[in-house]
Design a binder for these strands. Structure first.
Lengths: 228, 228
DNA sequence: CGAGTAATTATGCAAGTGTATAGTTTTGTC
DNA sequence: GACAAAACTATACACTTGCATAATTACTCG
């Protein structure tokens, strides 16, 4: 998409090369939507929800404020779309890292990627907190939060069940559920403080604590899975 | 203080009983400050930071908006004071529960009170999230967050060290620090989801998971400390 | 090339924002 | 019971907010 549009633009630009005084350029709807979403996310992360006004969002995206209404109907709707977008890219960033074959190594990779950049990042934690604060008063946003939480936890539960099965440890559904809730909680807690207070932890400290903690909770050591 | 003011009011009221058309009553500065703080906390918890305007805060507190400036100088300063107030009452609510003599029971009581009302409460989680979102852009608020976090973690570290010492388990300072970070994280994570998604967990499930998790992390069972 | 269509801009508006300032009322004290 | 000080109210102001509407502009297709 991006490539197509670029070629398109170049074509037109060359055609009018001598005196191109166009006041704006058209973009594909999907691109404009993403530009606006990225703009509002960047603003909220850096300056808070309060700074994300329609005018500043438009300026950040390089357009005028009318486009927000044109593409999203309202600012509220744009923020909701941005919340979805952010949560999706967070889950994607975590899960693309856990493609290892060995179950224990997959679980360890999940913990590490959750507690390393880009997932562990001041801006992303800032975004998460600001949008959760809003979600507590907005059913639509809370639904996004709930879906993300459940998605995370369910996949984590699968990872845990795989790891237990791989070492021949019997386990019930209720047990893996409890373990998934606990492991998700400890990872979340470490992630939040690591993002909010980056100077409070040494380099690699959070991933080490995360590995050790999840290992202790599940009952499987995870520190030795680097090369699996 | 409250009693004194009440008597005071009654006294005056009786003196002018026949035709008391006073347009307002004076309060002790400390009381008015607390009224305004409670008003802004209630508004933010129920309707979000956006709804906490000077006019609505004043109405919630039963005064006019000029008093916010009179007592706090600015709305921003009031919010900062309210953040301190909220964090203090949270820590107080947690720590007043851990007065048991036996170290393991103290640790267990800490976990339970952190994951039960009034600490585990939708409004308090909502408040926490909304104010953390603001704190990520406000150094003063972030300082409050940091102090609260460190206070919590340090006292938790003491609890853990006491429990380990009590059972004769040797431990280093670095070890108890890691354990405190991890235990604090799992409690925070459970607390957040328990407050944000109260219907996602069964009655007593979070405290059970919390006890089991902290026990597994520290290496000491905590489920059997009810009657210690 | 020329017209239609939709993307984009430009502009206006009514409501709400925090703060400043001046005026009013309460209350303790002599 | 008057007086001063401070608590409290009332009001105005400059500014920002989100949204709507109309006027442009760019691009597509014949």
């Amino acid at each position: 998409m991006q490539v197509y549009s670029f070629v398109n633009f170049r074509h037109k630009a060359v055609a009018r090369m001598s005196a191109d005084q166009r006041k704006f350029t058209r973009e594909l709807p999907a691109q404009r939507r993403e530009q606006l979403i990225l703009a509002v996310l960047s603003l909220i992360a850096r300056k808070g929800v309060r700074a994300a006004t329609v005018r500043d969002i438009a300026q950040e995206a390089g357009v005028t404020q009318g486009l927000i209404r044109h593409y999203f109907g309202s600012k509220e709707s744009l923020v909701a779309a941005a919340y979805d977008y952010h949560m999706s890219r967070m889950t994607d960033a975590v899960w693309q890292a856990s493609d290892k074959p060995e179950p224990r190594a997959r679980l360890a990779a999940f913990v590490i990627s959750s507690l390393s950049p880009p997932v562990l990042n001041r801006d992303w934690v800032s975004l998460w907190a600001a949008l959760l604060g809003r979600a507590m008063q907005d059913p639509q946003l809370l639904k996004t939060h709930e879906c993300t939480y459940c998605y995370f936890r369910d996949r984590l539960e699968s990872l845990i069940a795989d790891a237990l099965r791989h070492v021949g440890r019997p386990h019930t559904k209720a047990e893996t559920r409890r373990l998934a809730i606990a492991c998700n909680a400890v990872i979340d807690g470490l992630w939040i403080e690591g993002g909010a207070l980056p100077d409070a932890f040494a380099q690699g400290e959070l991933t080490a604590i995360g590995l050790r903690s999840v290992g202790a909770l599940v009952g499987l050591p995870l520190e030795d899975t680097e090369d699996l």
